[in-house]
């Protein structure tokens, strides 16, 4: 069947301000899969996520990225979004003055246009937004408020998941969407993610904790350490990391470098 990866990263090296952050990442994510990327602070997780979404401040030193078989790196951020890539931001941006509802309607309609679907009018969109808001237990008052403006940390994260469920991406990259959530919010976020799971879609979960993985079972867990994927494994790897921290990985790397 369809054994072409949805996302394929080959030896990706990325620099910012002259400093190399990603030092050769190779990774393949197939349709239907959930991958989890774990790693200590500063290891490059967000950098990878932002590069995949098209952030222009990073310098690509080497490597390539294929999305559904196509060269991803030359595409603008908006083109990637329209083709089905979604990044849930670690730090969602506040946009005072623009209502959440308006913002999302504009976003959903550009994506729909790309997919050859008719645009939704205000009423149709409101109905859709209400339905999806219910799914992620997002308070309806947040729809009328300005995008993320004055939202609590948890509300911002929920809002990211809410956007994801509206945009129905093919490749969702969630950058620490589980951080700073209480257990109820975490459950809701997991629910949103699980609702998206589909044989044609893939999900990349960037996280520090295996907590979320109790609710969303990953197919593969990767450890990102100092800009490299140093270990990949099944979901047991997440448990092991939770238990032992990242120290032992550092030792392993040093050990293997010595031998």
């Amino acid at each position: 069947m369809n054994r072409r990866p949805l996302l394929e990263i080959r030896n990706l090296r990325v620099r910012i301000n002259g400093q190399e952050i990603l030092k050769g990442i190779t990774l393949a994510v197939y349709p239907g899969e959930v991958h989890s990327i774990m790693g200590p602070n500063g290891s490059g997780k967000s950098t990878l996520a932002q590069v995949l979404a098209g952030r222009e401040v990073y310098e690509i030193v080497e490597g390539e990225v294929l999305y559904d078989g196509e060269d991803l790196l030359p595409m603008s951020p908006e083109e990637r979004a329209r083709r089905g890539i979604f990044l849930a931001f670690q730090y969602p941006v506040e946009i005072p003055g623009v209502s959440n509802l308006y913002f999302l309607k504009a976003a959903v309609n550009t994506v729909r246009k790309q997919r050859g679907l008719p645009e939704l009018d205000a009423m149709e969109f409101l109905a859709l937004a209400r339905e999806k808001a219910k799914l992620v237990e997002l308070d309806e008052s947040l729809l009328q408020r300005a995008v993320n403006d004055g939202f609590s940390g948890g509300e911002k994260k929920r809002n990211e998941i809410f956007q994801m469920t509206l945009l129905e991406p093919r490749l969702a990259i969630l950058d620490e969407t589980d951080s700073g959530l209480d257990i109820d919010a975490l459950r809701v976020v997991a629910q949103g993610i699980n609702a998206l799971r589909h044989p044609d879609r893939a999900i990349v979960l960037i996280t520090h904790y295996q907590r979320l993985l109790n609710y969303v079972t990953p197919d593969v867990v990767h450890v990102l350490y100092d800009g490299r994927i140093v270990k990949s494994g099944g979901k047991e790897l997440a448990l092991e990391l939770e238990e032992k921290g990242y120290g032992w990985i550092a030792e392993e790397i040093i050990g293997s470098a010595r031998s």
Partner: peptide, 9 residues
């Protein structure tokens, strides 16, 4: 970037 990542040109 946030806006563009949601598909807005």
């Amino acid at each position: 970037f946030y806006c563009r990542s949601r598909g807005l040109d």
